[in-house]
Amino acid sequence: MAKSSAAMPVNPHDKNRVTWKKDWARNKTVYFVFIPVAIYIIITHYLPMFGVVMAFQNFSLAKGVFGSRFVGFDNFVELFTGDAFLNAFKNTAIMSAFTLVIGFLPGIVYALMLSEVRNKKFKRTVQMISYLPNFVAPVVVTNLVKLFLGNDGPLTALLTTLGLPQQNWLANADPPVFWLIHTFMGIWQSLGFGSIMLMSAIAGINGDLMEAAAIDGATCMQRIMKITIPCIAPILGMSFVLNVAVSFRTIGGNVLLLYMPQTYSVADCLYTYTHRMAFGSAPDMGLSAASNLFQSVLGTVLLIGGNILAGKINSDARLF
């Protein structure tokens, strides 16, 4: 009996068969290896969560978390009744939508196009070039954008020759100028690097399928539409869910370096608002913490919602 049991493959997720003790005995090396990781996550990700207390305090730098006065939901009342926060929320939603709708597609198209290139040398060179912007520091990228779109920048000069008025485009508060600049800057930065996952997914598609379709007379476009895209759909779905979830947290890193009071109406987002409240000329840590907590809760809701939505479209696309 014991012999046959040992020979049977054990499903580690089968709770009826494997107790925690047995699992520990069998995999304790793995658990030992995981301990430092768990400690790291607890220390750097969970313990700081205690800081959310600040969102419910009239926080004073001198008094700290334990000495500051508890004010309940006052910071949230101030947050939701102030027009700056609502404007930031609106802009975050719009910029997230722009990034998801306009920013998601070029990566797919780029990966599909590159997967059709047969000359390996050319393919690798193009890939390498497209990865580079991802390794350029955001502060350098934003400075380049400032130079190119400034009053005398080369892109401004190009747009002026096309009949648009000469101006510092980053100071233009008319929608959707800033939103487009932000979206295209993001595309330029992440196009190559973001396509790595898709490229590997495409590379994993069984070559026989493509060969058979080609023999049957399918055109290149038909092969992409009928084979490639369905095959990478789970990856696309998962990537989309992740993008939705993190969009409310990531929109703003570049904006912080690009925006100015003149463009608050279109550029100020939750990230920049939170940062400004914490590190502006008159810091209000309580309000900043409230804004940040709201951002986190919203991100979590979006992650769960996006995951459910992705699962409904394609069950393999669910992240959890």
């Binding site: 009239n58 004073s60 102030g82 700056a84 009071p261 608050y264 400004r276 409240m277 502006g280 000329s281 008159a282 810091p283 209000d284």
Partner: peptide
């Protein structure tokens, strides 16, 4: 503290 908040709301924001 209150003045700092007001300054931020009135001037900066």
């Amino acid at each position: 503290q209150s003045n700092n908040k007001v300054y931020s709301r009135v001037i900066n924001e």
